Simulated assay, not measured.
Amino acid sequence: MADILKPKNTNPRGIPEAPFIDKVENVVKNPDTDFDMIMQMFQQRLQQYKYMELSKKQQLADLNTKIPDIEKNLDVIKHITETKEEGDEELETNYELNDTLYTKATIDVEKLESVYLWLGADVMLEYPLDEAVQLLDERLEKNNEQLKIVKEDLEFLKENITTMEVNTARLYNWDVERRKKLK
């Protein structure tokens, strides 16, 4: 009976595939003693899938915030580099001080050789322009790969949640029919 939920397959990240109950009679051998335990096992697995789905949705939201930020930083650095190459001495720009406050700044592009990047955990480091682009490109690539993986996992979880909901409904309906026959 413990083998019912033992995964035959897993996705590449080790998330187990939900079994599909074709015939409830093959799973519940002794209805009087096994049914409640089997139903509980299926409901627990369903809750585990839902928890994993919630976690993956949070990862997706984080990545959907990080990726545009990285792209925006790359665009700014590329604009600075292009302005330098054109021979312009100054660059006038607007920048955000906080959520609702913006101000103008004049940047001496001729002397600008580096930028400061937030690395997280209240850490900011100075990078030469070319190293900053390289670092941001690497982070963008890793985050895009992670985004693809998270989307695959969410799709896998969605399919398995549906399978477990169907299994639970089949178990419940089978038990209702069984009890009707007993009366």
Rank of each mutant, 00 (worst) to 15 (best):
E177H: 09
K84R: 05
K8F: 06
L63C: 01
W118M: 10
K104V: 03
N167C: 12
T65Q: 11
F35N: 07
L54W: 14
L129C: 01
E86N: 13
V76S: 12
I149D: 05
D99C: 06
R178T: 14
I149G: 00
I80P: 02
D34Q: 07
K66R: 00
I149E: 13
N64L: 01
Y49M: 09
K56T: 09
T93R: 08
D34P: 00
S55M: 14
K6I: 11
M164S: 05
R179L: 14
D108C: 08
D69N: 06
A2S: 07
L136E: 10
I77P: 03
E159M: 02
Y127A: 04
L117F: 10
F35S: 02
T100K: 12
T83S: 08
V109I: 15
R179H: 14
E86T: 15
N173S: 14
E96Q: 06
L136G: 11
Q48S: 11
A121V: 03
N30V: 11
K56P: 02
Q44C: 08
L182K: 13
I77W: 05
H79W: 09
L171F: 01
L5F: 02
T83A: 12
D88Q: 14
M41H: 03
P68H: 05
Y95R: 02
I77L: 08
R45V: 04
R45K: 05
